[in-house]
């Protein structure tokens, strides 16, 4: 793993040491060996992936990049959106996440569910009708800002 993961060169070592010690110990709660920073990093990997994909899609919407692969970007976005809920399930305040994520979990997770549904629909639309069909839906499907305004802290 060292070869592929910058900043994660300890991955294999941890796999053998920590993994051997803890894996399969059924008494542990799901996240017993996820330390808090790892949990924060993980959900940020999910969010940053969506950020990169939306940026690529916007380049296409603005006619700066040829849009022939828009549907693939939309699919990556949809696949990734579906991983977000697991990533936020451990209650770890920190990073840029406000405590309200967990205090208002019902609302927060409802918003994530809506993002999953809207991005899946967008991916389907892009696949069938390309940019022309998908562009009008992008604004409403990408509910990113609505959630960030409420649940994300802006740090520089």
């Amino acid at each position: 793993m060292i070869l592929l993961l910058r900043n994660r060169s300890a991955a294999l070592l941890k796999l053998t040491l920590v993994g051997a010690a803890f894996m399969g110990t059924s008494l542990l709660p799901v996240n017993a060996f996820a330390d808090d920073q790892e949990v924060i990093d993980y959900r940020e990997h999910v969010m940053k992936t969506m950020g990169e994909q939306v940026a690529a899609m916007n380049q296409m919407r603005q006619a700066k990049i040829a849009p022939e692969n828009l549907a693939v970007h939309a699919e990556i976005l949809a696949v990734t959106a579906a991983t977000a809920k697991n990533a936020f399930t451990p209650r770890v305040v920190g990073g840029k996440a406000k405590a309200e994520v967990w205090a208002n979990w019902q609302d927060f997770s409802k918003r994530l569910n809506e993002l999953v549904a809207a991005t899946a629909d967008l991916a389907k639309t892009a696949k069938q009708g390309g940019l022309a069909a998908a562009a009008p839906k992008m604004e409403s499907a990408l509910t990113c800002k609505g959630c960030h305004d409420v649940y994300r802290e802006e740090k520089k």
Binding site: A34, E38, T49
Partner: peptide
Amino acid sequence: TLNEQSAALGQILSTTIP
């Protein structure tokens, strides 16, 4: 995108994330 996804996968492989 590849980087964020590989890093997420690496966390899973190192068993710090389910």
